[in-house]
């Protein structure tokens, strides 16, 4: 098993009478891209802050890069907080250099690394402009530069894609994948499921401060079983015509599975009718379905 670069165990935090994180346990392993999911206000940001020692937990423990979250360790982490802004009246390059230097790079190293990354994200021409002349998406990209400039071992991003246009989302994902190939571990929080399905191997899902799911994304989907079957064939058997089905492009039909209509029965019907089948696929639930299901169930309870 790969090394755990972040492990939180039994993490708990209350603000006044409200418990915002309740006994949350998960780990992030070296070299993976980890998705931290949850609806708005579920406790993701508080958990991320506690994991880095920015705020103190009321209970539980954190191990980050093999140590407690102390400043010498945190310098090796890249962090993009949610909705953070650079000082509006400062110049872009000055702000970036300041924050990158705090991560341990020298003045010149910080400046040249900031220049290099600003070119990569298409903001080089704005380097001497004031921050408040940038659009929201540009600011987000500038702050992303700060998170990765010192080539951290662990990159933690809180809602990194919010406010970005599709081009910048794609660019940020591409840069994250490059860092992952170079050996970095990436954890990001989001409530956009398609981003997670596209990038993550493992996930944790929290809602109202409680951990609902944690583990390998494929396993989680498999555990929830087959929800439908897609069949591409020359026709539809007579005995299946009245079942719950819908037509898809390319001669494909999708059957919703229930206790009566099992994948086995569908397969048998096609075999019995002699219709030749080009494709027969058991469809897993989408992460979006799982998210809605799990969060709704937890809230009903």
């Amino acid at each position: 098993m790969r090394e755990q670069v972040l492990r939180v165990e039994g993490l708990t935090k209350s603000f006044g009478p409200r418990t915002v994180v309740n006994n949350v346990t998960f780990d992030v392993r070296s070299g993976e891209i980890f998705g931290f999911l949850g609806p708005n206000g579920s406790g993701k940001t508080t958990t991320i802050r506690m994991a880095q020692g920015i705020i103190q937990s009321d209970g539980g423990s954190v191990s980050i890069l093999g140590s407690s979250p102390q400043r010498s360790v945190l310098k090796g982490i890249g962090y993009l907080p949610e909705q953070t802004g650079l000082p509006p009246k400062a110049r872009v390059l000055d702000s970036l250099r300041y924050l990158i230097r705090l991560k341990g790079l020298s003045f010149t190293e910080a400046e040249s690394r900031a220049d290099e990354l600003l070119k990569q994200v298409g903001l080089y021409e704005y380097r001497l402009k004031k921050v408040d002349t940038l659009s929201r998406g540009m600011r987000q990209m500038a702050q992303f530069v700060v998170a990765i400039a010192h080539r951290p071992r662990l990159i933690i991003l809180d809602e990194p894609f919010s406010g970005l246009d599709p081009l910048n989302v794609s660019l940020m994902k591409q840069m994250l994948l490059e860092h992952r190939r170079a050996g970095a571990t990436i954890m990001f929080s989001t409530h956009v499921m398609s981003d997670v399905e596209e990038m993550c191997e493992r996930i944790a899902l929290i809602s109202d401060g409680n951990l609902l799911l944690f583990g390998d994304l494929g396993d989680i989907r498999r555990e929830r079983g087959t929800r439908s079957v897609q069949v591409r064939a020359a026709g539809v058997p007579e005995d299946l015509r009245n079942e719950n089905m819908k037509g898809l492009p390319d001669d494909t039909v999708e059957y919703d599975i229930d206790k009566k209509l099992t994948p086995e029965r569908i397969m048998q019907s096609y075999a019995a009718s002699g219709i030749s089948v080009d494709r027969f696929e058991r469809m897993m639930p989408s992460l979006n379905d799982i998210f809605i299901e799990e969060v709704s169930r937890a809230r009903k309870i």
Partner: peptide, 17 residues
């Protein structure tokens, strides 16, 4: 107050006491 309002302090405080 600007560092507080923009939440920049979250970044700074992970690198400096």
């Amino acid at each position: 107050s600007e560092e507080k309002e923009t939440r920049l302090v979250e970044l700074v405080i992970t690198s400096a006491s």
